[in-house]
Computed example of a mutant assay.
Amino acid sequence: MLFLMEKLLLGYSKLLQWGDSRMTNYALMGSPIPVFFILVSYILFIFEIGPHVMQNKQPYTLRKTIMGYNLFQMACNLLGLFVGTYYLPQLSVLCIPLDDPDLTAPHYWYFLLKVVDLFDTVFFVLKKKYKQITFLHMYHHVLMLVGSWMSAKYFPGGQLYVLGYINCFVHLVMYFYYFLTSWDSAYKNNIWWKKNLTQLQIVQHCLVLLSFLMPLLNQNCTYPKVLLMCYLPAVALMIYLFTDFYIKAYITNKKSE
């Protein structure tokens, strides 16, 4: 047993040493323990603590809180777009190497934004909108949190820039819509917004899939091919889940009306 513990500790130590040295001094990047704690706390609150606390309570409205949160998200994603646009002339979507240019800081701040995104689900629980906590919703948030931390820790920047840049634009539009619905509930009944937002999400993931496929097929690209091969199935699953949701929500249901 002691031998096994020593091996595990040695392996854990080596795993930390493999991380990009440029990320060492950033908060939450020293080890996976803080992010693991955040993730466990998030899941426990969503499925156990939150529903138990809210069991005998009326749903919170949280109108002003959510409006402020949506404005904050809009500001952060708009800033992400500005930063991404600044680097855009230096990059080629066909191949963005890990170290050219140095995108460690933008990658780190993008990871922090994925931590903030978890409040979406917290608000669902406090408003007792449990039906909105779907597999797609949870998969998306958990994948983005874990994926953004791992990529920032071990291979910041590079081809993932495309994902972050496109995602900031989509989230800017998405949180603008959420702000409108929190400001005036009449927007919730506008099917045009909901339908086109889902279409935008599908297009987003198709573009990201293409941005990973091109450097994979580009023999001169130095971005690690094994990483691209890991990204592709995850993005393909996102496309499937969003497309399945779109078909069920806006095609199948419409035919049954």
Rank of each mutant, 00 (worst) to 15 (best):
M29K: 09
G50T: 08
D102H: 01
S21N: 07
I66F: 12
G84H: 08
L81D: 05
M29W: 09
T65V: 15
V53Q: 13
G80K: 10
V40C: 08
I96Y: 05
L71F: 12
I96Q: 01
Y26D: 07
M29R: 03
V83T: 13
N77P: 00
F45A: 06
V83W: 07
L44K: 03
S31M: 07
D100N: 14
G68W: 12
P97D: 10
I43E: 06
L79A: 03
Y69Q: 02
L81V: 13
L71R: 03
P34M: 08
S92V: 03
Y26P: 02
I46T: 15
K64E: 03
P101W: 06
F37V: 15
F47S: 06
R63P: 00
Q73S: 10
L94W: 14
V40D: 03
V93D: 06
A27T: 11
N77D: 08
L28N: 08
P32M: 06
L28Q: 02
V53D: 04
P34I: 03
M54Q: 14
L91M: 07
M29V: 07
T65L: 07
L79W: 13
Q58F: 01
S21A: 12
L39A: 10
D102Q: 06
N70C: 14
D102P: 00
Y87R: 04
G80N: 08
I96P: 00
R63V: 13
I96N: 05
Y69T: 07
L62W: 04
G68C: 12
K64D: 05
P89S: 14
Y87H: 11
